[in-house]
Each structure stands twice: as C-alpha cells, then as structure tokens.
C-alpha cells in the first residue's frame, strides 16, 4: 500500500465519520421536531391514566433536554446499539439486516441491468444521432423520466400479474406459506417484476446522459483528428469514444445509488416486496422512531459507499486522476 492509497483511505474515513455524525444528529433533531410522540406511538391509542402515562414518559425519557437525548442516542450508536423496533419488537439492526438483504438483491440487479442497457441504448442513440433509433430511445427516456416509478410499477403489475398472470402480485412468498418454506424459485418469481420496474425507470437517465456524452465526444477535436487519420465507423467509437463516454456515465450510475434507494421505496411498496423501502414506509407511518433512524443511517452508508466506489473506479479507469494525485503527494 503506497502513500496515496493510505491518504485516500484516511480522507475517506474522516469523511465517513463526519458524515455519519452529521446524519445521526440532524435526523434525530428532525424527528424530535416532528409531531411524533413516542408514548402515543407505543400505546396506539390505548386508554391509560395520566399516572401510567407519566411513568411511560419517564421510561422513554420524553422530557429530558435535547442534548441529553442526542448524547444518549450517539453513545448507544457508538456501541452498535440502534435500539429496538417499536413495530417489530426486535432489535432494529436485525430488522434492517434482513430487509436490507432483500432490497440489496433488488437494487443491485436493477442497478446492473439499467446500467448496461442504459449505456448500450445511449451509445446506439448517440451514434445514430437524429436517426429513428435515436428518436425512439429519446421518446422512451422522456416517457420513463416523466412517469413516476410507482405508476410504472402499477402498469407492470396490471400487465404481467393481472392480465397475463405470469407473476404473483406481491409479497416475497405466497400468503399462507412461511418465508422459510418458500423455494428459491418462488422468491425469484417475486423479484422479477420489481426488478423490471426499477430497471426500466433506471435506464432513462443513464441512456440520455450517455447519448449526450457520446454526441459531445464525437464532436470533439480528437475524434476529428482520428477521422482525419482515416479511422471511422464503429471501430472509431470503440477505440476512442467509448472510454471517454464510459467515465462520466459510470459516475452518474454510482451517484444514482441515492435515487435507486428512493425508487426502491416506492416500488417495494407497490409490489409489497419486503425490503428496506417498504420497512421505511411502515416505520414512518407507525412512528417507529428507532427503526426510521436506523434506516436513515443505513441509507447514508449506502450512498456513501456508492460514491466511494465511483471514486475508486475513476482512479483505475482515468489515468489523469492517478497522475494528479501523485502531484498532491508532495
């Protein structure tokens, strides 16, 4: 490990700690300012006497000053204790782990599929700029970009589950079956439609972006010179334009981690897919403060990882960044 790598890791670590600290504190304050009352959330409208209520308030620490609350939250967080979920009655970390894994499969698949198809479509459209393929791709992208993802999800659900009956309508396992009894095929069958929806939606931004990048690259001076030297057609694009287009497209795709997360929340809701997104909605609606905070933290980690991966990737693909960092070293 050389100096540059050490410095990179050190900077990223500091960055990460500061980010988590800020997210932890601010999301806590936001929830504190929200009308959520933990006692009411716990009671779920059960009738109790004021004395009992006072005991509960003391138990939850409702009337402590904000700083004490934040300090308590942070010190527990540091020990890896995210608290217990109000609605699931198990430690938050367990809920998140289980749900996040389900979401992760969904998001990772959609991310890869939309990335590859989007980049491919963008290249084809950019190469045939102004042609019918280009127009078709653009039309697709504009429609998908303007339509909300939950609506796309509903349309897909109507077509493939209701009309065609190819796939189950929702849930990760059929009603009446224990999730541990479900076969991998049953589980996969329920993964198809949410993945399809997220991929379809995810294709639009990356395809449009790739197309524009390629058009820009193709009108650049170095493509002009390459053409003047007799290169042309697909080999020219493959040799000179592809890598120059791939770099910015990769960055965008990694930055899309955040959007992916947002998209997953809606799509999981539509398909009743038991992932982190659906859990976040449930936690929000039922005032499960601990679970909500846990999910906020885990999504911050997720987005941070996405951006860091983009940085690392850039480092390997782009010779200019490698060189620039060697100047920093001194």
């Amino acid at each position: 490990m050389n100096n540059r790598t050490k410095k990179f890791i050190r900077n990223k670590a500091i960055h990460f700690i500061l980010l988590m600290l800020a997210v932890a504190i601010f999301s806590f304050i936001l929830l504190e300012l929200s009308p959520i009352d933990p006692v009411n959330a716990y009671l779920k409208q059960a009738v109790i006497s004021p004395e009992q209520r006072l005991i509960l308030e003391q138990y939850w620490g409702v009337n402590q000053p904000l700083t004490t609350k934040i300090w308590g939250w942070l010190s527990n967080l540091l020990q890896g204790n995210l608290g217990n979920s109000l609605i699931y009655r198990v430690p938050v970390i367990d809920v998140i782990y289980e749900r996040f894994m389900a979401s992760f499969v969904l998001m990772a698949l959609s991310w890869v599929i939309s990335g590859i198809i989007g980049f491919g479509l963008g290249i084809v459209a950019g190469k045939n700029k102004g042609g019918w393929i280009d127009k078709l791709v653009k039309l697709y992208c504009y429609v998908l970009q303007s339509a909300p993802s939950f609506w796309i999800g509903l349309v897909i659900l109507i077509i493939f589950s209701v009309e065609l009956g190819w796939f189950p309508i929702g849930m990760s396992v059929a009603i009446g079956t224990l999730s541990s009894d479900a076969t991998i095929w049953q589980w996969l069958a329920r993964l198809v439609l949410p993945t399809l929806t997220l991929s379809l939606v995810g294709v639009a931004p990356i395809a449009m972006y790739t197309r524009n990048e390629l058009v820009n690259v193709l009108s650049s001076d170095y493509i002009l010179f390459a053409r003047a030297r007799g290169e042309s057609g697909w080999p020219l694009i493959e040799r000179q334009a592809l890598r120059n287009t791939l770099l910015p497209a990769l960055t965008l795709q990694f930055q899309n981690f955040a959007e992916l997360f947002g998209g997953a929340v809606l799509v999981e809701q539509v398909f009743s897919y038991p992932g982190i997104g659906q859990t976040a909605v449930a936690a929000g609606l039922q005032s499960d403060v601990t679970l909500l905070l846990g999910i906020v933290l885990i999504s911050a980690v997720f987005v941070f990882v996405g951006n860091t991966l983009a940085d690392v990737m850039y480092y390997f693909v782009d010779p200019r960044i490698r060189e620039n960092e060697s100047f920093d070293k001194n």
């Binding site: 170095y222 010179f225 053409r227 003047a228 030297r229 007799g230 042309s232 890598r243």
Partner: peptide, 23 residues
C-alpha cells in the same frame, strides 16, 4: 476523401486537444 485521408493526405492539428485524453 475517406479512402485517402490519413494515408496520402494528412492533417497536422493545432493542439494537444486533438489527442484522445484517455489513450
């Protein structure tokens, strides 16, 4: 033109911008 460019007729461009930055 396409057949002979880069072979019999060549262009000397003006700046380093005419080179692919990633190659």
């Amino acid at each position: 033109k396409e057949a002979i460019r880069g072979k019999e007729i060549c262009l000397i461009p003006q700046s380093v911008n005419f080179l692919d930055p990633l190659m």
